[in-house]
């Protein structure tokens, strides 16, 4: 029953037991399973690339709402910031994703299957008509994965958006009042003052907080597995676990340490690069600002 290596990149990989060390490693590192690992690195990077701007947008919206002069939007902004910040991430991830998924399916069920007579909740079971399933159970696996990926993006964005909102809210308050008064003195409307004076100047106050969030976001990506996305930690654990010769052409002992060391290096290098870039951005934003770090 020895599972064959199947499609391999190198032709000599058909019988790994006969190979020298280097050739063995080249075969081992190019198995379909390892491709899953490499793909998951791209997944994580894509998640960060989409989540960071989305969360920033949510944060900006939240901060603007929280500063608003209308009671309802101010209440909404503050509610969003304090509730999401107050709920432990893991609970939010478990509860919110299931709730939004079931909420969407429930809504689709009401629209698409008006003559469905069975109840949606049957004991523990949540059953909507097949046409209301999201994604449809007939959809290919990649659709399910993309759907899972975007629920992950949405969840991360909402969570990190709340923190970003608080940072931006503070940054907006930190812009010297005199700057805004000067804007008003020049005859700018409140909207003009906001976009031309406040927003360009707040970034320098927001950046330390936002860079913290970015670092935390990078480190939070392993939570992806909670959302059913196979991330790098899942693959490291799966690939590193010991394999017996009966079930793999590449039997090995417990190699999880090495895989996790690889992840450690990845995260360290990634955060180091981020730090360097953020520092450059900070210097750039401080230019001409009335802060201590500014170079006039």
């Amino acid at each position: 029953m020895s599972p064959s290596g199947g499609r391999t990149i190198f032709s000599y990989c058909t019988d790994p037991e006969t190979l020298g060390r280097l050739a063995w490693a080249s075969c081992y590192l190019t198995t379909g399973k390892h491709m899953g690992l490499y793909w998951s690195f791209l997944t994580v990077l894509a998640l960060l690339a989409i989540t960071a701007p989305t969360a920033l947008l949510f944060g900006f919206g939240g901060a603007v709402a929280a500063r608003s002069h209308f009671f309802a939007s101010r209440w909404f902004g503050r509610f969003y910031i304090s509730v999401v910040r107050g709920v432990p991430d893991i609970i939010f991830f478990m509860f919110f994703v299931i709730a939004i998924d079931q909420g969407l399916e429930w809504a689709r069920h009401q629209i698409l299957c008006p003559d469905w007579t069975e109840p949606i909740r049957q004991g523990n079971d949540f059953r909507v008509c097949p046409a209301a399933k999201l994604p449809l159970s007939s959809a290919p696996q990649w659709v399910h994965e993309v759907y899972g990926f975007f629920t992950a993006v949405l969840t991360f964005s909402i969570v990190f958006g709340a923190f970003a909102a608080n940072v931006l809210f503070g940054a907006m308050q930190a812009v010297p009042q005199g700057q805004l008064e000067t804007g008003a003195a020049y005859g700018m409307s409140r909207r003009q003052t906001f976009w031309r004076i406040l927003v360009p100047q707040m970034w320098v106050y927001a950046l330390p907080g936002l860079s913290n969030l970015w670092m935390i976001l990078i480190k939070a990506t392993p939570l992806l597995f909670l959302l059913g996305v196979e991330d790098i930690v899942y693959w490291a654990r799966e690939l590193g676990g010991s394999k017996t010769a009966r079930f793999s052409d590449y039997p090995h002992g417990d190699w999880r340490l090495w895989y996790f060391l690889g992840l450690l290096v990845f995260y360290l290098v990634f955060t180091k690069i981020s730090e360097a870039l953020l520092e450059r951005l900070m210097r750039r934003l401080s230019r001409g600002q009335a802060t201590l770090g500014a170079t006039v």
């Binding site: 599972p3 199947g6 198995t31 399973k33 097949p130 676990g241 017996t244 079930f247 793999s248």
Partner: peptide
Amino acid sequence: AASHSTIRMGTEGAYPPYNFINDKGEVDG
């Protein structure tokens, strides 16, 4: 019509010989 009969089979993929992920990265066992 066929779409309604696609059954999604859930497994753990970490318990050989019952179920595991093979070298190709597929569920096997």
